[in-house]
């Protein structure tokens, strides 16, 4: 089974290598990826925004919307990580504790006076 999967992945990788025969050589200045919109970025980054570093100019100016989407993905990943792992603990007066209150309470040991607010079985 493991050998079969290895052979299958080997065939796939050799197809990938075979498929590179019409890709441009490494370092070719005339390759399609180096001729398109990037020449505009190189020639106009300083004129448009007084920024010598073209990577920064493309990141935050020309393609700012793309960067905004990626940044929101990072924050959404952090939020989902917190939502997966943590649950707030309800205090005795009914208000909710801090973000890490349930984790800390479980680490401190069982406390019969309070109960978790989430849907624990």
């Amino acid at each position: 089974m493991k050998l079969f999967a290895m052979i299958l992945i080997g065939i796939l990788a050799s197809f990938v290598i075979w498929g590179t025969h019409d890709l441009p050589e490494r370092g070719d200045p005339q390759s399609p990826a180096n001729l398109g919109v990037s020449t505009y970025y190189i020639e106009n980054a300083y004129i448009d925004s007084e920024t010598p570093n073209m990577v920064t100019a493309v990141l935050a100016d020309y393609r700012g919307f793309d960067t905004f989407g990626e940044a929101v993905v990072v924050v959404a990943a952090a939020l989902s990580s917190l939502l997966i792992l943590l649950r707030r603990r309800r205090r005795e007066d009914g208000s909710e504790g801090g973000l890490f209150s349930e984790v800390d309470a479980q680490k401190a040991g069982p406390d019969p006076s309070t109960s978790p607010s989430g849907g624990a079985p």
Binding site: S38, T39, Y41, I42, E43, N44, Y46, I47, M54, V55
Partner: peptide, 12 residues
């Protein structure tokens, strides 16, 4: 600012 003197910033 000549395009062949700088590598492509877009993939970076």
């Amino acid at each position: 600012p000549s395009a062949e003197l700088y590598i492509n910033p877009l993939p970076q």
